[in-house]
């Protein structure tokens, strides 16, 4: 029920406001946080930091997608590639890859390249397996159709394989967006590259309750907006699918 949902949020905000009246130094309060977000906007250059972070994230995510999709396509299409690479990829899929960030600092310094590398390392792997699954599925279903109609080579790749695997890739993008955002924030946080991450490190040093909550809420808003955007893109990309297949 819609009313219960709204009521839940309202009750939460009221309780938070009440807690804030009692001890604003620990709980802040919705009104104080809104004031703080407005202050960050007007004085702290919040908009620029958010846009910079999102832009870096999108660029790195695009790199990750290209590398991940290419690898996924290789292991999905060629048995040799799957034999050689898949054990390592499966292993990498289930480990906390964010731990390699200090090594990436050594390799790439503390600039934009480092941030991009962090995003690629953290999210590339998440696109490999959906793409591989999509490729395998498309090959299984359409390989003989394509051969029966003498479609091969580049035509098969661009007219059959890629469109067929696209919904799978979109799913990979959807599940990796959160991780891409976290990767860029962790990178900025660690090396002090201006962006959402430095907002976090400032807030951690000052420990001002209003700021702490404001920064968390801004991160939440960015995460929610990105998720909504990717969800919309996924639906739009997959929308043509039944018409093409029928």
């Amino acid at each position: 029920m819609k009313y219960i949902k709204v009521a839940g949020v309202v009750v939460f905000l009221l309780l938070w406001q009440l807690a804030g009246q009692i001890n604003p130094g620990i709980y802040s309060s919705p009104t104080l946080v809104v004031t703080e977000i407005v202050r960050l906007f007007t004085e702290g250059g919040l908009l620029g930091l958010v846009f910079g972070t999102v832009a870096t994230m999108l660029l790195g995510w695009a790199f990750a997608a290209v590398i991940g999709v290419f690898t996924g396509f290789l292991i999905g299409r060629y048995r040799l590639a799957s034999l050689v690479l898949e054990p390592y990829l499966v292993a990498l899929y289930s480990v906390p890859l964010i731990a390699v960030v200090p090594l990436l600092v050594i390799w790439f310094g503390i600039g934009q390249t480092f941030l991009l590398a962090t995003i690629v390392v953290a999210t590339g792997i998440m696109l490999v397996f959906p793409t591989a699954a999509g490729t395998r599925e498309t090959v299984r279903v359409y390989d003989q159709v394509a051969r029966a109609y003498c479609v091969s080579g580049r035509h098969f790749l661009f007219k059959v394989l890629l469109p067929g695997a696209l919904p799978f890739i979109a799913t990979g993008m959807r599940i990796s967006v959160q991780r891409a955002l976290m990767a860029v924030i962790v990178g900025q946080f660690l090396v002090g590259h201006p962006g959402l991450g430095t907002l976090l490190s400032d807030a951690r040093v000052r420990l001002d309750a209003d700021e702490v909550f404001a920064v968390a809420l801004v991160a939440l808003a960015v995460g929610a907006a990105l998720t909504a955007l990717v969800g919309w893109a996924d639906r739009t990309l997959s929308a043509w699918r039944p018409e093409v297949t029928s």
């Binding site: 924030i185 976090l200 807030a203 995460g223």
Partner: peptide, 11 residues
């Protein structure tokens, strides 16, 4: 769940 949980570090 939609928030990058790293943002909770200062809190």
């Amino acid at each position: 769940f939609l928030m990058p949980r790293i943002a909770l570090v200062p809190l």
